[in-house]
Design a protein around this nucleic acid. Structure first.
Lengths: 333, 333
DNA sequence: TCTATTGGTTGGAGCGCTCTAATGCTGTAA
DNA sequence: TTACAGCATTAGAGCGCTCCAACCAATAGA
């Protein structure tokens, strides 16, 4: 259970500890003979460097901390893939911690990450207050994903939710829809831009917006549809705040004997793996998730290397993915 | 960007560094006056202890490493919740890394976690070879979740896949089904026990097993159903290897004009959030995921505290969740 | 011949902390 | 008074590593 140290390797290879250190860091100024001797000794002992001692001694870190607000959401998994890709390319490792969408647990997660003194921090859709983020940003570079910030030391990567909503509305209008309701995400992240984009797009087409209060869950989507049916205010098309909401909406529509898309069209948002399932086959708005991660990691590493001090605000273009839940109104299909 | 050290706090509070260390570790043998003075100084400087220096000096760690083989799978998120809960209770932190279901990346992830010299390691459904796991287990306590091992220094937590399959078959038989096929998970984790349980249960009921080769994806599930239809070998009920496979199967059945559950019943496995969606409402087998995490963390911490040396093999009981994809055969419902 | 120069190698200090043993300081008993 | 606990406090070594300055051939240039 006791791991060998650099000293052990040095002893076995018959060289000094400093030389082993140089070999471990791939220094060019080591003779080939010594290098192979050291690597052989290290291999035989099963030695691998102690990252914490290294970072303590060098006062630098090759670790990026990633706080994932909600591990249950597959959206973040792809963002992490993007981060990991760029980090690895540039010789950095990542460590992840999760906040469980609770501010208290999230704060703990960030504290825990900070205690490792990483080179930088990426927060995926954090729910902690902006002040807490600002405080962290005083200590090390911070990048926010799927959350905006006005702090000038913090970079952000977001999708253009307004444009996404616009894409959806343009699609529905081009199919011939005129009565299009939006099932709203309330206080949820990015719900604001999506709502604004919906309103703007509707008005641009000379149509009256119809906003129905809802949430980012399938249960809420179903509830919203039932209330529309009760109020006899059912439109010919629905733009949901996200895919889960859309699936709930479809379910409630089918329960009411309505067919999707013949009677009502439904568009989701996020292009989760759920939407891609053949059984669901949801028309939705895709966000370039891995690209989020890549850009976030790149922005962070620029700050880490002190190549830049002005904030960067990435606003990525979402795209429309047409599947089988949208069609012209009135069952004309 | 430069964080204060213990020395700074000591200077400001007019005490020694060792005293600050005692205060930071909540030692009882510090006078109340000094304690408050130190805490005040720490607060004013915004000091927080340097976890790596601490762990280096104390040759102990309060960190548990968690390797999640696939972050995209929400299954693991709940396991992590369970781990986190127990770890926090007992004063430990967790750091996560992900393997992306690729052995190479997974190995890197484990290496990275080990470089922080955590107190122990939990591997969630690892795909690396058993020898690699054995090697890690020589260095620190290791617990495996959703993967079995014969190594005596490694604890494991699994669900009883055989029993789960049996529950599903018993349910279908009790509804009156006699021709029940199993869409097999092939090489996938836990596919073996599920297949064995299926065969045993069928034979116990005096029925002939019908195994169809498939995989853990919805596309594979759909493909398997189409081949059954082509071969004119469609049974009255299907036990899929997991929920995704089941949803693909349902989709293919509906495409073929068959109704679920009136014409064919379908049972999934895992009780993912997908299965719970009203739109899907899949009868499936639930695994106590958070409990997996809790037991794994507890087993690990026992080893960390050297309270136990014999291996523990947890085999948790799955349970049947009946929803709307199962009914008596022949549309009798 | 002596001095530079170069490339490889090493000792030692120090990163921020913990831990042990020693220290100083009371108060109490002999 | 001295001795001795008993407690709070501290100096100093050391965790595994990096980094700097110094060192040591071996070769080149004068």
């Amino acid at each position: 259970m006791v791991r060998p140290t650099m000293e052990d390797v040095a002893l076995r290879a018959g060289v000094s500890r400093a030389l082993v250190s140089l070999v471990m860091r791939n220094s060019p100024k080591v003779s080939e003979a010594r290098r192979t001797a050291v690597l052989k000794a290290a291999e035989e002992l099963g030695y691998s460097p102690h990252a914490m001692a290294r970072s303590l001694a060098s006062r630098t870190s090759t670790v990026l901390g990633v706080m994932v607000s909600d591990l249950h959401n597959a959206f973040f998994a792809e963002v992490v893939d993007g981060i990991d890709e760029v980090a690895r390319e540039q010789g950095f490792d990542i460590i992840i911690n999760t906040g469980g969408r609770s501010p208290a647990r999230e704060r703990r997660a960030v504290e825990s990450l900070l205690s490792f003194r990483p080179a930088g921090l990426i927060l995926l859709s954090p729910v902690v207050p902006a002040t807490a983020i600002g405080k962290a940003a005083e200590q090390l570079p911070v990048v926010l994903v799927a959350r905006s910030s006005r702090v000038s030391t913090v970079d952000t990567v977001n999708d253009d939710g307004e444009q996404g909503a616009r894409l959806a509305i343009d699609h529905l209008v081009s199919l011939g829809h005129k009565r299009i309701a939006h099932l709203d995400g309330g206080e949820g992240t990015q719900a604001g831009p999506r709502r604004r984009g919906y309103v703007t797009a509707m008005e641009a087409h000379g149509l009256a917006p119809q906003i129905v209060s809802s949430e980012y869950t399938d249960v809420a989507g179903a509830r919203a549809i039932r209330s529309l049916i009760t109020d006899d205010a059912l439109p010919t098309a629905i733009l949901s705040c996200n895919d889960f909401n859309a699936v709930g909406a479809i379910s409630a529509l089918e329960d009411a004997g309505l067919r999707v898309p013949q009677d009502v069209s439904v568009v989701g948002y996020d292009n989760t793996s759920l939407a891609a399932l053949r059984h669901v086959s949801l028309t939705t708005i895709d966000q370039p998730r891995a690209e989020f991660g890549r850009l976030a990691a790149e922005a962070l590493l620029q700050r880490v290397r002190e190549e830049r001090t002005e904030p960067v605000r990435h606003l990525l273009n979402p795209s429309l993915v047409v599947r089988n839940t949208t069609a012209p109104p009135g069952g004309l299909r």
